[in-house]
């Protein structure tokens, strides 16, 4: 039952995030979705990742969104989409139904909780290639962000002026 309530909560929050007109509120709904997903993860036994999701997904990402929205500012954009809404709905639903139609009859997967190698060991040892790449990704992301957000032209011009 608890699972079901959380499912409904997730979907509701997600839908609100899409639907709400104010960006900031949208970001909050996203945080809500994230938190509920984290709880769902916790319920099926993934304790470590639930914490991480709570802190990164619900925390960090929301902060980033709020930050970006603050800089970029919310602006009234007409709620008209290019694609007729019914068309978008139909196709989304069809895609989901096609997947579900094939998958749901097979969903008798039990959730097994037998312990394999501990999470720490798995992340730091067995999957250290992924971890290494995460570092690379973060590095690449930071460079990208710096490139996009620092105004190098301005800095260069400023420096030129100082020199002169």
């Amino acid at each position: 039952m608890l699972h079901f309530i959380i499912l409904v909560g997730i979907l509701f929050c997600a839908y609100q995030a899409v639907r709400d007109k104010r960006l900031l509120v949208s970001a909050i709904w996203l945080a809500g979705t994230s938190a509920l997903v984290a709880i769902m993860m916790y319920l099926i036994g993934a304790y470590q990742i639930a914490v991480i999701e709570l802190s990164v997904g619900a925390g960090l990402v929301t902060v980033l969104f709020v930050f970006a929205i603050n800089i970029a500012g919310d602006e009234p954009i007409p709620n008209l989409s290019f694609i007729p809404k019914w068309l978008a709905r139909i196709f989304t639903v069809v895609a989901i139904v096609l997947i579900g139609w094939q998958l749901l009859p097979l969903l008798d997967f039990p959730i097994i909780l037998n312990q394999d190698a501990g999470f720490q060991q798995l992340v730091w040892e067995n999957r250290k290639a992924d971890l290494y790449l995460q570092v690379v990704m973060i590095f690449a992301g930071v460079i990208s962000m710096l490139r996009l957000l620092t105004d190098e032209y301005q800095i260069r011009n400023l420096r030129k002026e100082i020199q002169e």
């Binding site: 989409s81 694609i83 196709f91 989304t92 895609a95």
Partner: peptide, 13 residues
């Protein structure tokens, strides 16, 4: 962009 994503969805379906 929306149409571009729509094409992806159509291809998926």
């Amino acid at each position: 962009l929306n149409w571009n994503v729509f094409y992806i969805l159509v291809a998926l379906v």
